[in-house]
């Protein structure tokens, strides 16, 4: 299949200055030489924790940021230098409520952006009602965006991102801040778009979202790609293994070290919480080590013990590290 996005050794650095009198320059390396490509028609996910470099990647590919070094091409055009040819072909939606004019109606927003994308009037007049229908805003299209709920604003963003019928759409955390139903509706729209043949590059930190929507996922952290594969294959990183999960009230780091040394244990990660901490022990055969582990943890006030098959989340945590908080 044809590659529509090619990224090679992409590096992006930000220079930020601090202080009023003594300017202190600090270089933040947001992308540390990443390489990947996206094929035509696929839904490609960038999955990673806060500050991983997802937004930075999306901005570079949408011509908003210049790469510091390395190569980034979309449809064979350099994102920095050939943006004139590229911009009509792409569009992007950055999650959240910004990026539309709140004081205008949904329809006015769409008309304005159609014009800026130089969409032909006839096509525009036909497309806008379709888009409003697609995102379910037809009956409120002429009200000011101010009066919309967060979900409606986010859906309007989707419509806005489609005014030029782009071949590839970049979505940066499109479901952020939505309730479960709103998020599901949005995912439905995304998967519909994909079945219409659009190429989609999506960033998210929701596992199930990536799992449900993406054909391939790159797990990214601190500007590096840690793994890149289909969700099924990523899960296989852990499938031979299962997870023994022990919820405890108190935690003793020494005990964790001991558990790590039990034979058959591959990895231990901890999800810290307010009420309880979850110790996730990845191993081939949980029943064999359960006895040992529980004996060790008995002083930690065990609240619950369960075993399950590995999920994408386990693969993610294994790669990114278990230090992230729920």
């Amino acid at each position: 299949m044809e590659n529509v996005v090619t990224v090679k050794n992409l590096v992006r650095e930000y220079i930020s200055t601090k202080g009023i009198i003594k300017k202190e320059k600090k270089i933040i390396r947001a992308l540390n030489g990443i390489t990947f490509d996206v094929k035509r028609g696929e839904v490609f996910g960038l999955l990673g924790p806060n500050g991983a470099g997802k937004t930075t990647t999306a901005k570079i590919l949408t011509t908003l940021l210049a790469p510091t070094s390395g190569e980034a091409k979309v449809f064979g055009y350099n994102v920095f230098g050939e943006e004139k040819k590229l911009r009509p072909l792409i569009n992007f939606i950055f999650g959240g409520e910004r990026g539309i004019y709140w004081r205008l109606s949904a329809r006015d927003n769409l008309i304005y952006f159609s014009d800026l994308y130089k969409v032909d009037n006839k096509i525009r007049d036909k497309r806008i009602p379709e888009l409003l229908e697609l995102v379910g805003l037809s009956d409120r299209a002429d009200e000011k965006v101010e009066t919309y709920s967060k979900g409606m604003k986010q859906r309007l963003q989707i419509a806005r991102g489609l005014v030029n019928d782009p071949d590839i759409i970049f979505l940066d955390e499109p479901t952020i801040g939505l309730d479960p139903i709103g998020a599901r509706e949005l995912r439905k729209i995304i998967s519909d778009l994909s079945s219409c043949g659009k190429t989609i590059l999506l960033t998210t930190h929701y596992m199930y979202e990536a799992d449900e929507l993406c054909d391939r996922i790159a797990i990214i952290d601190k500007g590096n790609i840690l793994a890149l594969d289909t969700p099924a294959n990523l899960k296989k990183l852990c499938t031979e293994t299962s997870v023994l999960e022990v919820s405890v009230q108190e935690l003793d780091n020494q005990l964790i070290e001991q558990i790590k040394r039990i034979e058959g244990v591959e990895d231990v990660s901890i999800l810290y919480g307010d009420q309880l901490h979850r110790i996730q022990i990845q191993c081939k055969n949980p029943s064999e080590i359960m006895q040992q582990a529980i004996t060790m943890l008995i002083s930690c006030k065990i609240l619950e013990v369960s075993t399950r098959a590995a999920t994408l989340e386990d693969a993610y945590i294994k790669l990114v590290g278990g230090k992230y908080e729920k």
Partner: peptide, 13 residues
């Protein structure tokens, strides 16, 4: 502030 500057800078116009 409204997040639209990025949009209007990156349109074909």
């Amino acid at each position: 502030a409204g997040g639209t500057l990025e949009l209007i800078v990156s349109v074909p116009t």
